[in-house]
Design a protein around this nucleic acid. Structure first.
Lengths: 295, 295
DNA sequence: ATTATTTAATAATTATGAATTATCAAATAG
DNA sequence: CTATTTGATAATTCATAATTATTAAATAAT
């Protein structure tokens, strides 16, 4: 007596509304005619509204039925769209990946990822935010980011890391500096220079790595300036306020007048890693990471 | 194995998505928790998409589930609206009534109806069309009109008529005419005048009625002009091109300079009737006619 | 006029699958 | 370490959709 409308009713109703003929509609639905009759009748009872007029062998829609037909068409169509989209989202072919990164990841890793994503999963959107290592880790832990690009090897419990790009280090010297590609041999030739480094709290592990390069050559560098942005560091070097050690790929993409000397022989590498939450269920993230590892 | 999504699934899904707790959701739905579990699981199978993550006592939505939640909210809400509207339409409190009318019905009957409708059924819309008697009857027979306002007493099979307004007839004379309210006695005083009447094919029965007024007084009028519009008739009288006999209510609502002499004593009346199709199932029409008879 | 055909509705029955009860495994709190 | 709370599973019950068989009414054909 106290039933609820179900999608089944709508599908049956639409068939009758289209055919205006119970037997034909029942055939189309692969059910029996009496079953269809009772379901439509039940539907009219539930909605407390007559939907069809059956007089003298003819089945017609009432104005209410006419109205409902349009609405049902809309609803079923919308539902179809929703199902398709839902599947795409479930497969990670649609959705959003929230990405954090250190400025230096913008040199090649992040742009390559975005291009690849756009090509393979055009319906996956990204939001991008430049953040320090620590800020990225915190954002990922509290579910405000899906993926981070950092320079660190150990991460808090619940997160995972994986290296995605390894780079050599390069010395950055002002144009007039006596050391050049030909007479450069080891970093200890520059033991007495002022050093300009990336800020320690922005990327502690990276900072330590750079220091270790000097330590391996037997000296502790004099650090005169610290900065967050590569652009700033290059400007300082250009103005002869010190020398710097940076990942080699930073050579490209900046407007500057300095010398780059790549130090291939030292063992240290500038490693960029991706970080994510182990239990992140965003399927788009999985696809995003898989893509990244293939690039 | 090969089930279909039903609205039941959506309602269950929404409860779990809101509570993020199976037992609580089940209580809210007045069903058992295992039943809810299996239905949600079935839903995920049908949609081939995981909607919830259940790990370590916590229930969370996946991105796909998050998306579906919004869509389901929309769909269920839309459905609710539709049900309400459907009921209104079924009760004739909403919808459209297509009305045809003779120009003279615009004098009071149709405007009163429209005002009454707007007040009592603000959601019932009307479309209006000025048509001859015959055109209205044809339009109603072929379902292009719901209701007509005509001057005729007999209608084709399948249609019904009912008088809605009775009016006396009035003589229309030019201002300088010797006959006036005081010295008028009978229509035969005007037996030799030229008469201007409404066109015969526009309203045959009405035409015959006017002729019968003269016949009752023992003369056949000389008809010099015929017209469809009252405005035209009045202009002709004003210019002394003849005299006319029209329904008394036409005295109001026109800009003109003529004399009206109401003929209360004659038996003829100008009867305006409504016509409709006997099997018209538009509930708004029924309400419309009921309202009209109460005015 | 009579019979045959086609329509949808009704009645009785069957079959499907939703919901229930009973139970379990895992995780957490006290 | 026990008690409690979580959602999932299994077996069973029950509601109800669907089927078959039939009917009444309306046309169409003879």
């Amino acid at each position: 007596m106290n039933y609820q409308i179900e999608l089944r009713h709508f599908i049956y109703f639409l068939a009758v509304a289209e055919e205006l003929h119970y037997r034909k509609a029942a055939e189309k639905l692969f059910i029996s005619q009496p079953g269809l009759s009772t379901q439509i009748k039940q539907m009219e009872e539930i909605l407390q509204t007559q939907l069809f007029v059956r007089d003298k062998k003819k089945v017609r829609l009432t104005p209410a039925g006419e109205f409902l037909k349009k609405e049902v068409e809309f609803i079923l169509n919308h539902l179809d769209q929703t199902k398709k989209q839902l599947k795409l989202i479930g497969q990670g072919h649609m959705g959003e990946v929230r990405i954090g990164f250190l400025g230096s990841a913008m040199q090649n890793v992040v742009p390559n990822l975005l291009v690849g994503l756009k090509e393979k999963y055009p319906l996956v959107h990204t939001t991008l935010e430049e953040l320090s290592n620590r800020a990225q880790v915190n954002a990922i832990l509290s579910d405000r980011l899906d993926l981070g690009f950092v320079r660190m090897s150990r991460v808090p419990k619940g997160l995972e890391v994986k290296p995605v790009f390894e780079d050599t280090f390069s010395l950055v010297l002002p144009q007039g500096h006596p050391i050049n590609m030909n007479n450069f041999n080891s970093i200890d030739q520059l033991a007495n220079e002022d050093f300009i480094l990336f800020s320690q709290d922005y990327s502690p592990e990276y900072y330590d790595t750079v220091l270790s390069i000097c330590e391996d050559s037997g000296f502790v560098p004099k650090v005169s300036h610290k900065s967050v942005h590569a652009q700033t560091i290059f400007k300082l070097v250009e103005n002869k306020l010190g020398i710097a050690i940076v990942p080699t790929t930073l050579q490209h993409g900046f407007q500057m007048d300095v010398k780059f000397i790549e130090m291939k022989r030292i063992k240290q590498r500038a490693v960029l890693s991706m970080v994510w939450k182990a239990d992140n269920r965003n399927p788009a993230l999985k696809n995003c990471m898989d893509l990244l590892l293939k690039l």
